[in-house]
Structures are given as structure tokens and as C-alpha cells.
Design a protein around this nucleic acid. Sequence first.
DNA 1: AAAGATGTCAACCGCGCCTGG
DNA 2: TCCAGGCGCGGTTGACATCTT
Length: 281
Amino acid sequence: MHTSQEQMIKKGPWTAEEDAILLNFVQKNGPREWSSIRSNNLLPRTGKSCRLRWVNKLRPNLKIGCKFSAEEERVVLDLQATIGNKWAKIATHLPGRTDNDVKNFWSSRLKKLARTKHSSPGRELKNKGKSLVAQETQNISDYKNNTSNDQVPEGPSSQCSQSYCSSEMLNIVPLPDPMNLSSLRSLGTDETNLISSTESQFLLEFPEIPQQLELPLLPGNNGMELIGDDEPLLMNGSLFSEGPKDYKYYGDELATPDCFLDDFPDDMFDYIETMPSPSAP
DNA sequence: AAAGATGTCAACCGCGCCTGG
DNA sequence: TCCAGGCGCGGTTGACATCTT
């Protein structure tokens, strides 16, 4: 049973006329009292919808149609590792970016990582991917929470056994020295933050890399040039740095994880794909 | 050139917090 | 103290664009 007012609520893409009306409203009233837009019959949209449109598309100084720079990617990775999926908070550190932008950027990265591992996902993964990626995020978060007492699981997590990432990705193995977990632990800004989600994500994705492969070479050096005094480390946002102040560059570009993946041999993931599952008999 | 795979973006949904009555 | 409405946030979905085979 719908009221006539409910039936009048419009959904879907915004028209230029609607945008103009909304802009006019905000110019007169400021970005607030969104619900009055509908109650005053200015637009057949909910207050939430109006607010979202304003925040994501009509607000001044937005970077629309502009890809994330390496620096912006670095900020997102750092902050996500530090505070988790607080997209709105992260967005406050990125002028011109919205929480939606950050969220979409992060989802794209996760999907890319998932597909890298499952190199022939096909339509099945396409169909499952969206919810699975979200599940993966949750599982990573759960994993982080469950290891907050310095207890590092040595095998697949039973807690996540129903999920996509658990059966295929929760392939957690101790890292050999010097890239062991105590090294990783020392990275955290919070002692309880044993492995940040970015870090654990990498561990889940590529558990065997430190044991089996040489690290990729970075231009101009042997691939693991030290910036600070600490040992080279795999994780923490840029994957090759030990903290926000020290970031590797590929030429003029900051070394983002995507750059990182690009430098692995093409067949590297084929090898990973054939790794026996620890749960296999 | 066509079909499928992948990436990007816009928008909706549901939950929870805040605030005023 | 309780409740309802407004709002913000994170998660999710679907459409469209672009790339790959």
C-alpha cells in the first residue's frame, strides 16, 4: 500500500532541471534542511537523495572525472589501514573527493586484487564479485579484530570458512625473517593493530610471495632501497615503505600497490593459482 | 568486428546517531 | 526518558564505458 506521496517520489538519474532547482535551493538555504525540498514541492526527491546529489555532484570544487593521483591513492591506503572503512573521514583529507569517490576507488582496488588471484573468474565471479568483495573486506576486518591479542593464526580461519576469501584467500602463513610478523607488528601506529587491513589483505592474497619470489626490482636500484634505517618491509599502504613519511617512487610516480603489481612477472600469479590449498586433502 | 571481461561511476538502501519536542 | 524525524555514513547495486580476446 503506497500513499500518493510515496508514489510521487522520483528515483534514478538526475536531470539538469532538477540539478538547477537543487542548486537554487542550496544557494538560498544552504546545504541543509534537505527534507524541506520535497515538503515544499520543489522536487519529487527524498531529502536523502537531494543531499547525496549535492554532496557527490553539485558541491563546489569537486574533482569530477579526475582519476585519483598517486598521492591521493597513498592517502587512501594509509588512512584505510589506520582507521578502516571510514570513507567520509578519509575523504576529508582529500580536497575535492567525496566519500563515494573513496569508496569506489577502494572497491575497485579490492576487485582488482581479487581478480588478480582468480585470474579466470568469468561471469561467475562477475556475478558474485560485488558481495564477495564486501565480504572479503569484512573478513579482513574480522581477521584484524581476531588477531588483536598478538595471536597470529597459522592456518585458514574457521570463522570465515563460509566465505569466498576464507576458502581461497585466508591462506595465512608465517613470513620468513626478516619479513616476519613481528616486523609487521612494529609498523602499526596502534599496538592492537597487529596487521592493518591493507597489510593483511596482501598477506591473504599473496601468502607465498616472500618465501618463493624475489621482490620486484624498482627502477634505479635493487628494488628494496632503504629510505630510512629500518629493514625493508612489504606492507603498510605503499607496500614498500615503513611509514607515511617515506614513500618509494617509480620515476616521478609514487609507488602505489598497483604499480607494485605491475612490476611482477606476468606469470607470477599463474604460480600462485596452482598453489595447493591448505585445506585440500 | 563482436562478445565477454573489467573498470568506473552514480544512486539507492538500511542502519545508527543526533536532536528537539 | 522516550520517541520520531532528519541526517550522515557505509554497503550495495546497476548502468554505462572501456578494454581484451
